[in-house]
Design a protein around this nucleic acid. Structure first.
Lengths: 189, 189
DNA sequence: ATTATCTATAGATCTATAGATAATGC
DNA sequence: ATTATCTATAGATCTATAGATAATGC
């Protein structure tokens, strides 16, 4: 069947949308292509007309979700105080909704075990956000902060969010988030 | 065959030893029971005489590796300066050897997706290390640091290590570790 | 006529179980 | 006699491919 010219691209986009959410929610290794295709309203047979392999999908989904989050963070960086921005990351909603949340917190440790091409995609597209962080948030407070300093700041945020997510006691988990906010503020002083 | 009384326990220990390494190296979802048993010198059929399920193994392997690392960290906390301790965590060897390294950096984001019983085990056994960190490292520098503050400090260390592991360029990855050291020192000031 | 989608399947692997085998203590 | 181990297998799922089907543009 010859479909409309944009049909193929729209389908591909829908698959990427679902994949970038499910990978963050369940982990890359734990989510199968059949589930992704099914949630996109398709059967698994169609997958390979859109992507060469699961690893190719992983790279494109990472790219997509990192870029999407970059847009959001750029906006937050412009008009807000440090604390508002930090609390925009370290809050119970973000903790409880990994599917639309930070890619670093959800997938960095798993991406580290993937092929170099995948790590390269992750690193390159995360660098845009790190550079923006360094340029506005960090340098606003102290001088001479580079991409690596932004990575450490991001490490504090994502590492703390992960520990909060792994902590089953709600009150204790909330306290971890609050301690993370204090620590992040301290880093900026 | 009736084996020596300690035989069963030694075999179980060997399985746990292998599992706690492979889970950290490859991720929990990505490593199968057959591979674990094979590296322990056994076939998969024996697994269920030692553990009720894979999830039960996960809990015991987490418990074991968290406790093992706790011992090491306790010793480091006693006789070293802040910087030596921080560099004992954020260094290239630790980055390159996840199998024997920090459980939080390797598995926290994956544990967060596991059943509550597993998260409880993780949280309880990690709390011992967090309390030790709060008691010595943090309170040595600033007053009134609790378990949650230690969790944020640990979040900085583990989150930064994860980003270093995901960064394919060696020099850039090394720079992330160094920035992490600076940030951790800053947190203790 | 083209091509995205479907069903069906290959072949590998996953967790888990059943029943036979073999090594040691009583 | 006991029991940890083995082989074999069930049944589900994984990634990937093959070939039939069907929806739309020329």
């Amino acid at each position: 069947m010859r479909y409309a010219p944009e049909h193929n691209e729209k389908t591909r986009d829908r698959i990427l949308e679902v994949a970038s959410r499910l990978f963050r929610e369940d982990g890359i290794a734990a989510v199968g292509l059949a589930k992704i295709m099914s949630e996109a309203g398709l059967t698994i047979g169609t997958f390979y007309t859109h992507f060469k392999s699961k690893e190719a999908l992983v790279r494109e989904a990472l790219l997509r979700s990192l870029d999407a989050r970059h847009e959001g963070i750029e906006q937050l960086l412009q008009n807000n105080t440090d604390e508002v921005l930090i609390r925009g990351y370290l809050n119970p909603e973000h903790r409880d909704e990994p599917g639309t949340g930070c890619v670093v917190a959800a997938l960095a440790s798993e991406v580290a075990r993937h092929p170099r091409a995948t790590r390269q995609t992750f690193s390159t597209h995360n660098a845009r956000t790190l550079d923006a962080l360094a340029a506005s948030l960090l340098s606003r407070n102290r001088k001479k902060a580079g991409r690596a300093d932004a990575a450490a700041f991001m490490g504090l945020l994502s590492g703390t969010l992960q520990i909060a997510r792994a902590t089953p006691d709600r009150a204790e988990s909330d306290a971890v988030l609050e301690a993370g906010v204090r620590a992040a503020m301290r880093l900026l002083k």
